[in-house]
Design a protein around this nucleic acid. Structure first.
Length: 274
DNA sequence: ATCATCCCCTGATGGC
DNA sequence: TGCCATCAGGGGATGA
């Protein structure tokens, strides 16, 4: 599934499209996370792609005439380039024909992704105006995070997966960062020491940076909607490893549900401190 | 205001 | 082999 590093990789891979014009658009299935409005195809026609960037897990495509296309890949979304002759796959919902005569296709099995075409500044959009800091920027640091969460009783794992607290940390990175920091996922956020926040922040940054670096292997395959980074297979210590021995102490890993998400942890290495 | 819970969707998986 | 139930998950909507 696309996490922050994969979205970053997709954005880098789409950079060659800057300068291209959207000649023609076909919406094969408008039923995504939010329905694509019927005027989408005419509204985006003849737009020039000015720039591409990432904010949280959103792809921000700046277009001519002060329009912005915001794409979220949801759980299973993928963007890839192909020729017009490439057969349409089952879950391809949108095709953009570009001036380079290439197709940019959106593929999304579970349709949790979204397309929004804006004519207002994207920073003001309801979905983006309350986002927390980027985890790799200096504004995400131990002191600021501890201050933000000093009165919050919710589990630390729920807090760091909250978009308003910090963006881009999904279930995998939250689980792995907490394991690396020896923090129990149910630990109330306000009860963490500054030292623990320093560990947590630094491991979040380290894991995301490492995954972005490995995203390079995804980059060359990004035309393949089924491409999965080797990162997922290789370096996970707790995610998806319930009942398997801890890589540090061999204690069987345990699993709790936090905000409807599986949260695997080592009961020995990640003690709950009361 | 703050949280936990529900829900959207499909493919993979497991039980029978 | 087929059929059904269960589950995963980002994150907005809902309700306590």
């Amino acid at each position: 599934m696309p996490e922050l590093p994969e979205v970053e990789t997709v954005v880098q891979g789409l950079k060659p499209l800057v300068g291209a014009t959207v000649m023609h658009t076909v919406v094969h299935n408008p039923q995504l996370r939010w329905p694509i409005p019927s005027d989408f195809t005419t509204s985006i026609q003849n737009s020039v792609i000015i720039s591409l960037k990432r904010r949280a897990k959103y792809i921000i495509m700046q277009l001519s005439h002060d329009r912005t296309l915001i794409i979220h890949l949801g759980m299973s979304g993928a963007l890839y380039l192909c020729t017009p002759h490439t057969a349409l796959k089952k879950h391809e919902h949108i095709t953009l024909t570009l001036s380079s005569s290439m197709h940019l296709r959106y593929h999304d099995v579970r349709r949790f992704g979204s397309f929004h075409l804006l004519n207002t500044p994207w920073q003001q959009h309801p979905l983006l105006c309350n986002l927390g800091p980027e985890p790799l920027e200096d504004s995400f640091n131990a002191k600021a995070l501890k201050n933000t969460l000093k009165l919050k009783k919710r589990p630390i794992k729920a807090a760091i997966m909250d978009q308003r607290i910090v963006v881009g940390i999904g279930n995998i990175y939250a689980s792995e960062a907490l394991f690396a920091s020896n923090i129990h996922p149910l630990q109330p956020a306000h009860s963490l020491s500054l030292r623990q926040y320093e560990q947590l922040v630094s491991h979040c940054k380290r894991l995301l940076t490492y995954a972005i670096k490995l995203g390079g292997t995804t980059l060359k395959d990004f035309v393949n909607p089924d491409a999965k980074p080797g990162y997922f297979q290789q370096t996970l210590h707790v995610y998806g490893r319930e009942k398997q021995p801890c890589s540090t102490c061999n204690t069987p890993l345990e699993c709790v549900r936090i905000t409807q998400r599986q949260s695997t942890f080592c009961p020995h290495c990640q003690p709950l401190k009361t």
